[in-house]
Amino acid sequence: MMNEAFKINELGNLKFFLGFEIARNQSGISMNQRKYALEILSDTRMMGCKPASTPITHGTHLHQDDSGNYSDVAAYRRHVGRLIYLTNTRLDLTFSVNQLAQFMALPTNLQYQSVVKILRYIKGSPALGLFFPRNSFVQLKAYSDSD
């Protein structure tokens, strides 16, 4: 019925959508943002950096300190914004990135060094993502406000 009202093209199985890479196999569905993560690393000139084993150093307490204000506030906001979008499939980054997002108004050099540490962590595992096993009992439910 929709095909009669609108021209519909069958594109096959979903493989790439809004920066998400989707792969299906016998065991389930995997979803990651590898290409997007590599674009972030390339844009920030961090492709050649040494990978880090954790996104944030244990015991790091981010707060407004006197390490000096970071000079390029717009770049800090852009980096953190891109990292926020990456947390759609990288749940291991969520806590660290949310901590950094609290300092969007006036970031310091300490917060920017934490951004660099997260980028080094991404360098070590750019294809990390979500996996939904075929035999799982998880049900995806979504709600929407029609207003």
Rank of each mutant, 00 (worst) to 15 (best):
M2K: 10
F6T: 09
K7E: 10
K7Y: 02
G12S: 13
K15R: 15
F16W: 14
F17I: 02
L18C: 11
G19L: 07
G19N: 05
F20W: 01
F20G: 02
F20P: 02
E21Q: 15
I22S: 00
A23T: 10
R24I: 07
R24P: 07
N25A: 05
S27K: 13
S27M: 12
I29S: 00
Q33P: 06
L38T: 11
I40F: 00
I40L: 13
S42H: 09
T44M: 04
R45I: 09
C49Y: 01
K50G: 05
P51W: 08
P51M: 03
A52W: 02
A52I: 04
I56S: 05
I56W: 01
T57G: 03
T57Q: 08
H58A: 12
G59F: 04
H61C: 07
L62N: 08
Q64R: 11
Q64G: 00
D65R: 10
Y70R: 05
D72W: 10
V73N: 00
Y76W: 04
R78M: 07
G81W: 05
N88G: 11
T89I: 05
L91H: 13
L91V: 12
L93W: 02
S96R: 02
V97S: 01
N98F: 11
N98W: 10
Q99G: 00
Q99I: 03
Q102G: 06
A105P: 04
L106E: 10
P107C: 11
T108L: 04
N109G: 01
N109L: 04
V115M: 06
V116A: 07
L119V: 03
K123S: 10
P126F: 01
L128K: 14
G129I: 03
R134I: 07
Q139P: 03
Y143A: 06
D145R: 08
S146L: 13
